[in-house]
Design a protein around this nucleic acid. Structure first.
Lengths: 127, 127
DNA sequence: ACACTTATTACTACTAACTCACAATAAGGC
DNA sequence: GCCTTATTGTGAGTTAGTAGTAATAAGTGT
């Protein structure tokens, strides 16, 4: 019953810092987004239910919207895809999206670096 | 009963050139998009019904999709907006979208010209 | 001019991805 | 432990479509 303690405390502190109550639903959603970055609300619901089975879809929508407004989560909306969420909010990275399978990959901004586009592999379907 | 004759004949010829049958539904949709560029399917339906009242929404969706596939119409999908359609398909212009009212303005590509961004007015809400 | 074939359109669901209103619950301050 | 009110749950509603099939009519051939 002590797994995820570190992460939970960190998220709880962030919620309190924003004047929000620390609820198991918010912690479950935050943990789920952290475990599955670039996921849509539906997948976040499924992932969060593994640790909080009674969570509802509507709560996930509300929590995701609220935490996004607080900048604790970031939402992005690729065309022809539901909105995706991630916990990485401290920087301004880009997203490379595979046109064939929709997989998303973070691409760091190269501020202060020369852009180094070397071909190290492909971004092709993994499913 | 002879109004729109020129446009109708031109559209009819284009449809035949693509091996499509010339129907009053297609002509009504094409005329509506021409009269109201940058419009969503719902507005196109309303506009087309002024000359063909028995037209249904589903036919408009089918016709718009088919004519878009033929490149007789162009579809573009701004975020948080339904798909918009226009008849201007021969070039590769851009769209400036007002973040406050959603109004869309064509912006020509300046290939072969120096970009000349002079402030001639605003792109603010008209409603 | 008429029949005929099949492209086209209409009608009836059904869907995804949400949003809204309101009742039930529970977190955190006292 | 109680109480206030933020939060969550429940159920219905919305937007912007897609899918499946039946009805219609455009264009071709005679």
């Amino acid at each position: 019953m002590m797994e995820h303690f570190d992460g939970q405390e960190a998220w709880a502190a962030a919620l309190r810092a924003h004047g929000r109550r620390v609820t198991k639903q918010r912690l479950a959603v935050l943990a789920a987004v952290e475990r599955h970055p670039h996921s849509p609300a539906e997948s976040i619901l499924a992932a969060a239910r593994s640790e909080l089975p009674e969570l509802t879809a509507q709560s996930v929508y509300v929590v995701l919207g609220d935490l996004t407004d607080l900048h604790m989560l970031r939402r992005f909306e690729p065309p022809h895809s539901p909105a995706l969420y991630e916990t990485r909010v401290g920087d301004n990275h880009h997203h490379a999206i595979c046109i064939s399978c929709g997989r998303v990959e973070d691409v760091d901004c190269a501020v202060g670096h020369a852009p180094a586009l070397r071909r190290t592999g492909t971004l092709m379907p993994s499913r």
